[in-house]
Structure formats: structure tokens, C-alpha cells
């Protein structure tokens, strides 16, 4: 695996508290499949009432066409547990989100879909937004060395949980790795039944 986890154009979404109802509104949650959510991402912000793209919404601006890194602010993904939110973002083409903070469930859901979520201090997030004001940015993410590479030898380090890093680098099977503890699960079930028979 290459040490570059991702590279591409950065789209700056300058908002705090972007919630899951904005990322994908409820009318798209009636699907029973995992696919087909790309057009639903940020639906209410992205399209005007007549269904045409809102030219003022950052995602729709031509200079951000094809972006694969989403830069945003604090508490991104707050709200519901719908995994449709990271599915929509990923299917649109983003596989990296950089933010000051993420809501817990959204974070886990994204990691479970092999997306990289990078959390940075407010100062560094401000710095990245400033960079974006200078014109469209193409960055590379080196996951092994935990750095965002801006070109011209400039880089910004980030922290990441060792387990998540390992999972992203090796592509471990989420359920499969837990199944390796199968006999421990069985032992646990038996002792649970003995000590707390009412639990079933």
C-alpha cells in the first residue's frame, strides 16, 4: 500500500455543527440499499427549490468540482446515527474529512467505511481555511507519517488513534477480526447466563 492515503482537491465547507439532516435529509432514508446516495448529499443546501444546483453553495462551485477532501469546522456529523451520511459523502467522492471535531457516531460510521477523518485544533483549521482562500488547494494525506502535505515541502501533522490507523492501512475486516474472539464470546455468554440468568 502506498504511503499516500489520499490526494486531491480540497473543498472548504465553512460551517460549524453540520448535522446529519443536512448531510442527507430523511426522504432518502427509505432506501434498503447502500448505494445511490451521492446526489442526496447536502440536498437542501445543494439544490434550489426548482431542483437546479444552487450556484452559491460551495460544493457546486466549478473550482471544487471533483474534490475528494472535505474541510469543515466543529462538531461535524452531529445528530442521527444514519450511516447514510458517510455513505453519501463517500459516494459523492470524498474519502477524507478534516474538521475541528466530529460527532462520535458519525466518526465511527465513517471509519467503518474506510474513510479517514482528521481532527485538528481550531488554530490549524483556521490556517487551512486561510490557505483555501488563496485558491483551489490540492493536498496529499500521508497516513503512515500522519501528515497533510501541501506541496513545496510544507506539511502539517495530525494525530490518529493507532487502532484506526492500522485498520485503514491494512483494510482489516471489521466483523472478521472480532469473530476471531469467538470462543471468548462463547465463554462470556456462558458465565453471563450463570451469574445473571434473567438476562437470557
Amino acid at each position: 500500500m502506498s504511503k499516500i492515503f489520499a490526494k486531491g482537491l480540497v473543498c472548504p465547507l465553512d460551517k460549524n455543527n453540520v448535522d446529519t439532516d443536512q448531510i442527507i435529509p430523511k426522504q432518502f432514508l427509505t432506501s434498503v440499499s447502500r448505494d445511490g446516495f451521492a446526489d442526496a448529499m447536502f440536498f437542501d443546501w445543494r439544490y434550489l427549490a426548482d431542483g437546479s444546483p444552487d450556484p452559491d453553495f460551495v460544493i457546486n462551485k466549478p473550482e471544487y468540482n471533483g474534490a475528494s477532501i472535505l474541510l469543515t469546522r466543529a462538531n461535524f456529523g452531529c445528530g442521527s446515527s444514519r450511516e447514510h451520511a458517510p455513505w453519501a459523502i463517500q459516494q459523492y467522492g470524498f474519502n477524507v474529512i478534516i474538521a475541528e471535531s466530529f460527532a462520535d457516531i458519525f466518526f465511527n460510521n465513517s471509519v467503518n467505511n474506510a474513510m479517514l477523518l482528521i481532527q485538528l485544533s481550531k488554530t490549524n483549521i483556521d490556517l487551512l481555511f486561510n490557505r483555501c482562500q488563496q485558491g483551489p488547494q490540492h493536498w496529499q494525506i500521508d497516513l503512515a507519517s500522519q501528515e497533510i502535505l501541501f506541496g513545496n515541502n510544507a506539511a502539517l501533522g495530525f494525530n490518529i488513534d493507532a487502532d484506526i490507523k492500522q485498520r485503514l492501512l491494512s483494510g482489516l475486516d471489521f466483523i472478521g477480526s472480532s469473530e476471531q474472539l469467538n470462543s471468548q464470546i462463547t465463554d462470556f455468554e456462558q458465565s453471563r447466563k450463570a451469574s445473571q440468568p434473567w438476562l437470557g
Binding site: S81, R82, E83, I105, N109, N113, D163, F174, I185, E189
Partner: peptide, 21 residues
């Protein structure tokens, strides 16, 4: 008690467990 996403729902259905920190 806490909310989980669909990948985790699948994980719990399969194993009755969930990885946590």
C-alpha cells in the same frame, strides 16, 4: 446505551459484541 451505525448493527447481529474504547 448508545446509538450505532448500520455497519455496527451488522457487527452486533453477527457477533452480539461491539469493539469499543
Amino acid at each position: 446505551a448508545f446509538g450505532i451505525g448500520t455497519s455496527e448493527v451488522e457487527h452486533v447481529l453477527a457477533t452480539q459484541t461491539l469493539p469499543q474504547q
